[in-house]
Design a protein around this nucleic acid. Structure first.
Length: 319
DNA sequence: TCTATTTGACCTTG
DNA sequence: CAAGGTCAAATAGA
């Protein structure tokens, strides 16, 4: 595949292409989770394979575009957002998503109503789909509300817990955990748990907080200078998709609730609410660290996607 | 006054 | 039982 854009005149088109590709790939990734089905009875290409191909195609295209743009761009705009390049499934079974709306796996919030002395009586949401990214920013275009912070054993930095601000308005189940990486305090390990099911993501351009810096998010131990997080450009993000290890059949992913979730994604202002972890401000994503691979592994991507830093995609260079 | 954050308590899980 | 996740009262800020 070879796509060459005339430098000046087609910059906008190029930008759009990149955006669409990235977005499309994210959608395909979501689709993949929903279509964990074996080959059809008639031996036709399975949806799984299909999605794999789509993803591979996206990855390849982006790879080409990126490499072709790298040597042709000299300037970097600090404010430019950077697009995540790869969403890697390091998969365990994708079974858990099916239980998103399963009452048995619901957050304890409901079940605790009326019993004030049951603080903390919750069901740990190990049944949710989770994925982890490494990034220099925690901004992901979703509105989050911090609800807790914990000192973590053998970790210099505390872990902060966030939930979607629309948890109660719209019942959005998305949560995330943010923790500064000890070996690399410039970056954060961000674990997303569950997909956003809220719809007005555009109304939530930033993480909602009264705090002025991420330091306040990440605890008093944090001593990274504020200005370190004042800009968005040039972040690196690494995505590691994870599935809970569960016995549920992956085909449950086609659960009606999920489809409705998917519909929600589509309705959410052209922005995928779920896998938005590959936000516009990510530039590098990798992982091949999965323990148990899904049948369809993202290893189908070209090898460089699995290395840690060689795939650096800065959208600003393409725009 | 309203909304978000902080923080210690409480609970689940392994 | 320790570690980690969540709640909710207290607090802070707009």
């Amino acid at each position: 595949m070879s796509i060459l854009f005339p430098r000046s005149s087609s910059a906008a088109k190029r930008k759009r292409v990149i955006r669409e590709l990235v977005q499309g790939r994210d959608y395909a990734t979501q689709l993949k989770f929903l279509l964990q089905k074996p080959i059809g009875p008639d031996g036709s290409v399975s949806a799984k394979e299909l999605v794999a191909n789509v993803l591979r195609s996206f990855a390849e295209t982006l790879s080409v575009l990126t490499s072709s743009s790298e040597d042709s761009t000299s300037g970097h705009d600090h404010d430019d957002e950077v697009i995540a390049q790869n969403l890697v499934i390091s998969g365990e079974d994708a079974s858990q998503v099916a239980s998103i709306n399963d009452p048995s796996s619901e957050d304890s919030t409901e079940s605790r109503k009326g019993s004030k002395d049951r603080r903390g009586s919750y069901k740990r949401r190990k049944t949710e789909q989770t994925w982890t990214i490494v990034a220099q920013t925690t901004d992901d275009n979703h509105a989050w509300r911090k609800y807790g912070q914990k000192e973590i054993l053998n970790s210099q930095f505390p872990r902060s817990y966030f939930r979607c601000t629309r948890k109660f308005e719209q019942g959005c189940r998305a949560t995330k955990q943010v923790q500064r990486i000890q070996e690399n305090p410039d970056r954060y390990n961000i674990t997303y748990i569950g997909f956003h099911t809220c719809k007005d993501t555009l109304k939530a351009p930033q993480v909602v907080t009264h705090s002025k810096t991420w330091d306040s998010f990440l605890g008093p131990e944090s001593n990274v200078p504020n200005e370190h997080y004042s800009t968005i450009g040039s972040q690196s993000q690494i995505v590691i998709q994870e599935y809970p290890n569960d016995e549920t059949d992956p085909s449950d992913l086609t659960d009606a609730n999920l489809w409705s979730d998917l519909k929600d994604f589509e309705l959410s202002n052209d922005k995928p609410a779920g896998l938005k972890i590959a936000p516009e401000n990510a530039d590098s994503v990798y992982s091949c660290t999965g323990s148990r691979s899904l049948d369809m592994d993202f290893g189908i991507f070209s090898p460089h996607f699995c290395s840690t830093e060689d795939f650096h995609f800065d959208e600003s260079q393409l725009l």
